[in-house]
Simulated assay, not measured.
Amino acid sequence: MYTPPAFREDDPHALRQIMREARLATLVTATAEGLLATPLPLILDDSEGEHGVLYGHLAKANSQWKVPVIGDALVIFSGPEAYITPSWYAAKQEHGKVVPTWNYVAVHAHGPVEFFEEEDRLLDAVSRLTSLHEQPREKPWAVTDAPDHYIRSQLKGIVGLRLPISRIEGKRKMSQNRPEADRNGVAAGLAESERASDRNVADMIPTGSR
């Protein structure tokens, strides 16, 4: 991932937070047949390894797990993003030498991917992933709420994924390279947007007040 120094995110806590908040990631593998990609919800276990280990599952009918992988796999996590119009820059009124851009947050996690079919490992991965996303609900649903024989039959249709992260890249592009007046304009413009995602990005812009 191309990352100028001004946008590099190296803080381990921030990287983990971005990955967890992204919720849906994209698994990319290089193969002799070309690149293969699958959107997947994943869980990060940061108690394993230097950068943590990703767990998830994909449909057994998905051929990505069957095709031999060349090198490491790549998992892409996309965070908040927003279009930035030059109209918000103070520089537009000063000299007009401005162009549109895009602000966004992203993490690329690299590592050797392992696919597995053992029932107990699958059940553990599915249970942990379900608990993660059900936890905020008033009445969380648990895998054990369904009949055991039904869950066991469903596990036969999926394949587990384990990816120890060997290298991680983070990028937080939030107008850090612009003068303060331009950053203030961007934050104000995004804050007035009807899109909740734009307003989210507005809160991430480094301005004079933060």
Rank of each mutant, 00 (worst) to 15 (best):
V53S: 03
E117T: 15
D72K: 11
P179Y: 05
P136C: 12
H133L: 07
G157N: 10
R210D: 05
A188V: 04
I18S: 07
P4F: 09
T144A: 15
V99M: 13
V99Q: 13
G185P: 05
L190Q: 02
Y150I: 15
Q176K: 12
E192M: 12
T130R: 04
A202E: 07
V105N: 08
R23T: 09
D182G: 02
G49H: 01
A106E: 13
L122N: 09
S153Y: 02
A146T: 05
I70W: 05
M174I: 15
V98A: 10
G185H: 08
I18L: 15
Y150E: 10
V201K: 01
V98Q: 09
L163H: 02
E118R: 15
R23K: 14
S175D: 04
W102N: 07
H51C: 02
W65V: 11
A73H: 09
P80R: 05
M1Y: 03
A191G: 03
I84F: 11
A30N: 13
P206I: 02
W88A: 06
S193W: 06
T85Q: 04
N103V: 07
R137W: 10
N177R: 03
D198I: 10
I158L: 09
H108V: 12
L190H: 00
I165D: 00
A37V: 11
K60I: 12
A202Y: 10
D203V: 04
S209T: 13
V143C: 05
S209V: 14
E114H: 07
L74D: 05
E9L: 15
A187Y: 01
L74S: 07
E117M: 08
G34R: 06
G49S: 05
A142T: 13
R183I: 04
P5A: 12
W65L: 09
A109F: 01
L155A: 06
R8Q: 13
W141R: 07
V98M: 12
S127I: 03
L74G: 03
V99W: 12
E138S: 14
A37H: 06
L42G: 04
P136S: 08
A61W: 04
V143D: 02
S209Q: 11
T101V: 12
D124Y: 03
W102L: 14
R210N: 14
D11S: 10
P80K: 07
Q93I: 00
P136M: 12
L27H: 03
H110E: 08
G96I: 04
D182A: 07
D120P: 00
R23M: 08
N177Y: 01
V75F: 10
E117Y: 00
V186P: 01
